[in-house]
Structure formats: C-alpha cells, structure tokens
Nucleic acid binder design. Structure first.
Length: 199
DNA sequence: TCCACGATCGGCT
DNA sequence: GCCGATCGTGGAG
C-alpha cells in the first residue's frame, strides 16, 4: 500500500476531509505498529468561527498554518486530546479532525492505552469503545501535545492508501460539539460502520 | 490579571 | 437524556 504524498493533503480541506475516509492512519512506536481505517472526519476552514485558526495565528494553533500533511493535536475539556490533519496551503490555517477509526493493527496495545486498569478481556464493547470518538482515538494511538507538528511524510506517523470508497458510502452532516457554524455540513462518515461516534 | 468556556467522555438517572 | 470532571486558552479589562 502506498503512503499518501504531500499533494494529497495540499488540496481544499473539504475534499481532503471526504477523501480521508477509508485511508489508513498508521503510528509506529519502536517496532510496534498501530493502525486503523478512518471512518469519520470533520473539516475546519479558516473562514469558519468554529475553527481554531479563525482569529489568526496563536501559540496554540500555529501548527495549523503549515502546508497540508502535518499533525495538529490540542488539549480540550481539561482532560482530552484531539488529533487533526493539517490541510491546504501554507499560512491558511485549516485542518480535518479525525473523529473515529476502525482498529486494524496493534489492538492489544490500544486496549492497554484505553483501559490501563481494565481486564484483559477483549469483548465487543471494549473493541468498539477503543476508537469511536476523537479523544478515544487520540488515547488509543497515544497521541498528545508532543506529537503536534509531526510531519506525516516521515515514518513515525503517516497515512496509507486504503480500499476505494464510493460517494454512495459517505454520509454528509453537521459537526458535533460546537456552537458557532453548527449549520455547516462539514462532517463525513462511512455508512453502517460501528466505530462512527454518532449517527 | 481574571474568567468563561470548549472540535469530550463516562457514569448515572 | 443529563451532568460533572478539570484546565489551557484567549479575549476582555
């Protein structure tokens, strides 16, 4: 499978948000590999008040002003991290939030990250709860502030071409957890996928 | 300096 | 369906 090139990310953000569905997010920790198929995304454009970059560059959001193909991780609600993929051109300030993935490789490691005090039982509920939400995905893949700014064309955190996704498999709707720009239909997910966080 | 609030989750009713 | 946890951020003063 091919690694996604810079040119994939340096395109209009709504296009990238849709095209990211079905792609494989990969994180290498030493010799171990964690991977999952992206099943739910949200787009954040610089002209949109819900976007962190809306009011210009700050210390928190400066990573968003890179050209497409970098990771932007931020801390939210005093306890969670969320991971985004920077999109479009340098100095614009746009990104796509990864809201959910379907786990593929490294499920045992993800279980330990998500349920450090839990049992070893890998029941169906635990499997689903692994990555069916933006902060759950970040925790399962051990993505924190220190990974913000990572170049997705290097070999630690990167994306792979997955199977083909047709437009008919994609559902388009409004974004979650915001008060401004809530009418915009900039959330995309794969129909009938159990890991999608909210129908 | 201060302070309201958030791209959430999990537990409880 | 509702609510509490918990703190960084940035806008206001």
């Amino acid at each position: 499978m091919n690694t996604l090139p810079r040119s994939f990310f340096v395109r209009p953000t709504l296009t990238v948000a849709k095209d990211l569905l079905g792609k494989i997010f990969v994180r290498r920790i030493g010799r171990k590999i964690l991977s999952g198929k992206i099943v739910e995304t949200e787009a954040y454009l610089h002209s949109d008040p819900a976007c962190h970059a809306f009011r210009g560059m700050t210390n928190r959001n400066k990573v968003m002003f890179n050209e497409g193909g970098f990771l932007y991780v931020y801390f939210i609600y005093g306890m969670h991290y969320c991971a985004n993929i920077v999109t479009y051109k340098k100095d614009v300030g746009e990104a796509v939030l990864i809201r959910a993935v379907e786990p593929i490789d490294g499920i045992e490691i993800m279980l330990k990250k998500r349920f450090p005090h839990g049992s070893h039982l890998k029941n169906e509920l635990q499997l689903k709860n692994l990555t069916n939400g933006p902060a759950k995905f970040a925790q399962a893949f051990d993505l924190t502030q220190e990974h913000s700014g990572a170049n997705l064309l290097e070999n630690k955190i990167f994306l792979l071409e997955g199977g083909k996704i047709s437009g008919a498999q994609i559902y388009t709707t409004t974004r979650i957890g915001i008060t401004e720009g809530k009418e915009k239909k900039w959330r995309f997910y794969l129909k009938n996928n159990p890991w999608v966080s909210k129908k």
